[in-house]
C-alpha cells in the first residue's frame, strides 16, 4: 500500500530516532568545539611567542589540518590509530578527537590573528606600567582580542556542525545514518520517503546553523561600525 511520503517521518518511533541521531551529531560537535577552542587558544597564544622552532611546528600543524580535507582526516585517524598505535576508539569519540584537533588548528590562527592586531601601543603601555608577560596577555591582549575573535569563532562552530555530516562515513549513528536506515526500512511502503527524510535533515542543519551565522554576522557588523566610529 502506498502512503503519502511525509508520513514516514511519524511512523512508529522514526521521528524520535531522527532526533536521537541529531543529538549524537550535536554532542560530537559541541564536545569537539569545547576541547578545540581551549586547545586552540593555548596554541594561538604560543604562536605569538618569539620561539622560532615552536612557531614552525605549530604552523606546520595548522597547515596540515588546512591542506588535508576533513573526510581524509577522519579516515587517517580511523585506519591509522588502531593499526599503527593499537589505539581503538569508538567512532563517535574518534570523530570528536579529529574535529577537536581540527578546531584547535583553525582556532590557533584566529587567536593569533586577533592577538597581533591589537594595537602595538597597547602592548607597550602594558609593559611600561610593569606588567609581566602573563599579565600582559591576561589583562591587555586577550580581552581586546576576544571581540575580534568571536564572529570568526561562531563561524567556525557552524563549519564544525556542517562537517558532522561526514560522521556517516565512519559508521557513527548520526542523524544522516539513522535517516538512511529509515529510508531503507520504509522503501516499499513509502517510495517517496527519501525526499522527506533528507528534506527534514536538511532543515535540521539549517535550523541549527542559520541562527549561529546570523549572530556572527550581526556581531561582525557591530564591530565594524564601532571601528569606523
Amino acid at each position: 500500500m502506498d502512503h503519502s511520503g511525509i508520513s514516514v517521518l511519524f511512523e512508529g518511533t522514526n521521528f524520535q530516532r531522527l532526533l536521537g541521531g541529531l543529538w549524537v551529531t550535536v554532542r560530537i560537535a559541541a564536545v569537539a568545539l569545547i576541547i578545540g577552542l581551549i586547545l586552540g587558544v593555548i596554541l594561538g597564544v604560543l604562536r605569538t611567542f618569539k620561539n622560532r622552532p615552536l612557531r614552525i611546528i605549530l604552523r606546520l600543524y595548522l597547515e596540515f589540518f588546512r591542506v588535508v580535507p576533513t573526510v581524509v582526516l577522519l579516515f587517517l585517524f580511523y585506519y591509522i590509530l588502531p593499526r599503527e598505535m593499537n589505539f581503538n576508539l569508538p567512532g563517535d569519540q574518534l570523530a570528536t578527537l579529529v574535529f577537536a584537533l581540527w578546531v584547535a588548528a583553525e582556532m590557533s590562527d584566529i587567536v593569533r590573528g586577533a592577538l597581533i592586531s591589537v594595537p602595538q601601543h597597547q602592548k607597550e603601555s602594558g609593559k611600561a606600567i610593569g606588567l609581566n608577560r602573563y599579565q600582559l596577555y591576561r589583562y591587555v591582549l586577550i580581552p581586546q582580542a576576544i571581540s575580534l575573535e568571536i564572529p570568526a569563532t561562531i563561524n567556525l562552530a557552524t563549519r564544525v556542525i556542517k562537517t558532522t555530516s561526514l560522521l556517516l562515513l565512519i559508521s557513527v549513528m548520526d542523524v544522516i545514518n539513522i535517516g538512511q536506515q529509515i529510508i531503507e526500512a520504509n522503501n516499499h511502503t513509502h517510495p517517496t520517503g527519501v525526499f522527506w527524510v533528507y528534506g527534514l535533515i536538511f532543515l535540521f542543519y539549517f535550523l541549527i546553523d542559520y541562527p549561529l551565522s546570523w549572530w556572527a554576522k550581526r556581531l561582525e557588523k557591530k564591530r565594524l561600525e564601532r571601528a569606523n566610529g
Partner: peptide, 12 residues
C-alpha cells in the same frame, strides 16, 4: 546554501 552541509545537498 551556506548553512547546510554539502553532503546532505548531494544526497538530496
Amino acid at each position: 546554501s551556506r548553512n547546510t552541509p554539502l553532503l546532505i545537498q548531494l544526497f538530496f
